[in-house]
Amino acid sequence: MYKYQYIIIIILISYFSSAFGEALFGNEKNDKNIIWKAGLNRYIIFEKQDSGKFGKNDHPVNFESQDIKYALAALSIPDDSFFSLDDDTVNIFTVQQIKLLSDQLPKGFSNARPDQDIIFVLEKNESGFLGLDESSFIAGRMFFKEGRLNLIIGEYEFFRSKAFESFYDGSGRKAVPYSFNFGSRTRDSKNFDEIFINLPGIENKKANKIRHDWFVIDLKVAAKAYVNRENRGTESIQDKKLEAEAAKLARERRLMRAEMARMRKEMQEDNNGGASAKSIEERIATLEQLLDKELITKEEYDTKRKEILNDI
């Protein structure tokens, strides 16, 4: 057999084997569950409810992208990084993640079945020490119940091991099948000890005890409260700027008045020939300083200069 015929046979076998494999293992079924996907470990997909204990979900649901964007932006935890201050907080989701979720979730939930949750894995890339890349994953589960969005976070800052990825998959696709916990209705993932929720419309699920990993969100209420808070925050910032400006002006006026009083005292001592008597040149120089600083008017300057010169 000629060599090129081996090549053709190899190509045909490759295509047919893969098609058979795809049919057998149901890749077509997987595609229907995908809402968004970018690689093995970044996706938003439908999945069967993890537990039927709480009844079916209220799906499908329609809502505005903006509402969920504000709600997710409101979720934050204390920032325990090295350079953070005591009061600092950090958002659970990054700006990019919020945008992605707010773009995809409305579509997803408008097509979700009552027996389906939406699970997600998203990646966060940061530039760390010396500009080195650092990555981590966040994974969780969402569903609507009683008109409110339930968000359970199973993994937060799940470390992405780049060394292991390159060891595991030399193709460069970094296709490590990490085992993510997407959060469970029946088991606390214990990712968070404390959450900063200070917004109407968002609360932690309360069962036997408070589930810090489980958020129950009234999207409309939370979105409105978030917008109002941000607006108030904006106004407050402007007020503070004005106050600071006014305080600065008042301080400058006080300094100017004190300087003027000091110079007048010096001039008076000069006139009386006191211990601090100065030469004509010095007195005129002082007068010119007062004029430069606008502590005296031009007329006062002229009058006083004439007086000094008359002393000669």
């Binding site: 080195l132 890349d133 060394a163 292991f164 460069g172 696709r173 970094k174």
Partner: peptide
Amino acid sequence: AVADAGGDNWSISGW
């Protein structure tokens, strides 16, 4: 196309 080809980056990692 191969996925994940974008930007300059470097890393130190391991175990």
